[in-house]
């Protein structure tokens, strides 16, 4: 009961703060637009089999064509509909971005809380582990793994992005926990007889939650960009139509400079969607950290 009630009042309060940030609203608008597109993704293939983003081919077209009535955004090199590919890409971007961000933020928060609360050897061990992961060059590391595994499914990519993304979160949550655990209400909980588990879950975790949300929002941008990069260089999941994959098909079939109708939409969409999550994250950060707010 308490948590829901708290969430309701804090959402109401924070929304009024969020509304003041023009950049945040812009981000939210872009985000909402792409979310709407992602919801439309399953529709084209219901209209006609040739609109299936992966296996649907227009029987009369076997080369890339510019936008037409039949194909509002044109077709790719073998006559597949670019609009339905684009919509499918929006769906994949959200799925990959949000899942990877949520997993890495969950891992980061759990490790940050544990590290900050227990301190000592546990802290030293976990933070050295975080340092090791932090200095791994992300994209090259995933490329090496991809080369070793051969074809990767999209969920393995998500998992790899998440496993590389938690140390930043863990460090911030740890710092926050270090200061929170010295606050008198933690001692008050101990006087009441609370054990470590109760203090961690009931007293510390809810108080780092705003930071967790912030890092989740920022993490989505990174995950979307990483997945797009991987797909573009040909290491993505070949059974999934993502924006990065669309760019790769255009590139490998030599359409980069000949078919702007093919290249521009996915390219712009990748930039805009990761920008929108970043803007939303920044606006959240201003709410959490009032010192960033403009007077």
């Amino acid at each position: 009961m308490g948590i829901i009630e708290y969430a309701r009042t804090s959402i109401k309060e924070n929304w009024s703060l969020f509304r003041r940030s023009r950049m945040g609203l812009l981000g939210l608008a872009i985000l909402a637009f792409f979310a709407f597109l992602a919801l439309l993704a399953p529709i084209p293939r219901l209209i006609d089999d040739m609109y299936h983003p992966m296996v649907g081919v227009d029987p009369e077209i076997s080369y890339s064509t510019p936008p037409s009535l039949r194909h509002p955004m044109g077709t790719d090199f073998m006559g597949r509909d670019l609009l339905s590919q684009f919509l499918s890409g929006a769906q994949i971007a959200f799925a990959v971005g949000i899942t990877a961000a949520v997993i890495s933020v969950l891992i980061g928060t759990a490790i940050g809380l544990t590290s900050g609360y227990y301190g000592g050897k546990v802290d030293a061990l976990l933070m050295r582990l975080a340092d090791i992961v932090l200095v791994l060059p992300g994209l090259p590391f995933i490329i090496v793994i991809a080369a070793a595994l051969g074809k990767m499914s999209i969920w393995i990519i998500v998992l790899l992005i998440a496993l590389l993304g938690w140390p930043g979160v863990a460090r911030v949550i740890r710092a926050q926990t270090l200061s929170l655990r010295e606050r008198p209400f933690v001692e008050a909980a101990r006087v009441a007889g609370a054990g470590d588990r109760r203090i961690l879950l009931h007293h510390l975790a809810p108080n780092v939650l705003p930071l967790t949300f912030l890092y989740a929002a920022l993490g989505v941008s990174g995950a979307i960009l990483t997945e797009a990069s991987l797909s573009f260089i040909g290491l993505g999941d070949p059974s999934v139509v993502s924006w990065g994959m669309m760019l790769q098909w255009a590139f490998t079939t030599g359409h980069t400079f000949r078919a702007p109708y093919w290249i521009l939409p996915p390219g712009l969409a990748i930039s805009l969607l990761s920008l929108s999550f970043y803007l939303v994250g920044r606006a959240l950060e201003e709410i959490i950290n009032p010192r960033l707010r403009e007077p």
Binding site: G2, Y6, R183, P184, F185, E187, A188, A189, V191, A192, G193, H202, H203, P206, N207
Partner: peptide, 19 residues
């Protein structure tokens, strides 16, 4: 712990703000 309790100096800090 049930038989002993404490009242803290700063009531702004000794209550969990999320409770």
């Amino acid at each position: 712990r049930r038989r002993v309790q404490m009242i803290f100096q700063n009531p702004y800090e000794s209550l969990n703000p999320r409770f």
